[in-house]
Amino acid sequence: MATEELSKPSFLPPYPQMIMEAIAAVKEADGANKSTISQYIEAKYGVLGAPNAELLNHHLTAMKDGNEILFVKNNYLLPTSDGPVKRGRGRPPKVKEGPPPAGANVGPPRPRGRPKKDPNAPPAPKKAKTAAATGPPSGRPRGRPRKVQPLQNGVEA
C-alpha cells in the first residue's frame, strides 16, 4: 500500500489529456476501447478510485460529441488531419437553416391547400371517352355476375 501511495503523483492532468495520451500510446489500427484506456490510466497514474469509471464515461462521451475523438466499432480513435472525419452510422442530421437576416425581402407565406381556379380562364376541353371507359361492346352488364341460387327440388330458384 505504501508503494502505491509513493508512485501516485500528487498532480493529475485533466481527464481529456489522459484519454488522448492513452489512445496515442496504444498505437493500434482500430484504436483503443474503454477498458484499455482505463487500464492505461490506472497503470500510469495509479489507482484513481471508484468514480474513475463514471468520469471516464462522461469525458469519453463529451469528447466524442465534440469531435475531439472518433468512435468506430466500440473503439476510440484520434482524428487524423489527412483524412475526412469519420461519422457514426445512420443518416446525418439535417442542416438547420436559421431565420432570414433582418431587412431581407421576404414575401408573404404561401397559402395552404390547392390554389383556386382562375375564373377568367377558358374552359378545359372535354376528354374523349375511350373504349375501356365505356365498357365492353358485347352488351353484357358491367361488374360481377349475379350469384346463381342453388337448386331446390330439381328446380332453379
Rank of each mutant, 00 (worst) to 15 (best):
P109T: 01
T80M: 01
F11P: 00
P79E: 03
N33L: 08
A24R: 15
R91E: 05
K96S: 12
G98A: 12
N105S: 11
G139R: 06
E28A: 15
G98N: 09
R142M: 11
P136A: 13
T134L: 15
K73V: 03
F11E: 03
K147G: 03
I69T: 06
V72T: 06
K96C: 06
S38M: 12
P100Q: 01
L77W: 04
K127T: 12
P93Q: 09
H58W: 07
P150V: 06
A24C: 10
G83C: 10
R114I: 08
A62E: 05
Y40E: 01
S35I: 09
P100C: 01
G139Y: 06
Y45L: 05
S81V: 05
V106I: 15
L77I: 11
G135C: 08
P100D: 01
R142E: 12
G46P: 01
I41H: 05
I69N: 09
K44R: 15
S38H: 10
P93I: 07
A131H: 10
P145M: 07
F71K: 13
V148H: 06
P119W: 07
P14F: 02
K129L: 12
S138A: 12
T36S: 12
R146S: 11
I19L: 09
P93C: 03
E42R: 15
T134I: 14
E5C: 08
T3S: 15
G83A: 14
P137G: 02
L60N: 12
D30C: 01
P14R: 11
V85N: 00
A25N: 04
L60C: 10
Y76K: 04
E42L: 14
Y45P: 06
K8P: 01
R144L: 09
E5Q: 14
A24W: 07
P13F: 01
G103K: 09
R140P: 00
P16I: 03
N153E: 11
Y15S: 10
P13S: 00
P109I: 00
G107V: 00
P79C: 10
N52F: 14
A32R: 02
K126W: 13
P150F: 03
P101C: 02
K96P: 00
D82Y: 06
S10K: 12
E156Y: 10
K94Y: 08
G46S: 03
A124W: 05
A50I: 13
G107P: 04
N74E: 04
K129Q: 07
M18S: 03
E156M: 11
H58N: 13
V106E: 00
G88Q: 02
A132P: 01
P108K: 11
L48Q: 15
S138H: 11
A50L: 08
F71N: 12
G31C: 01
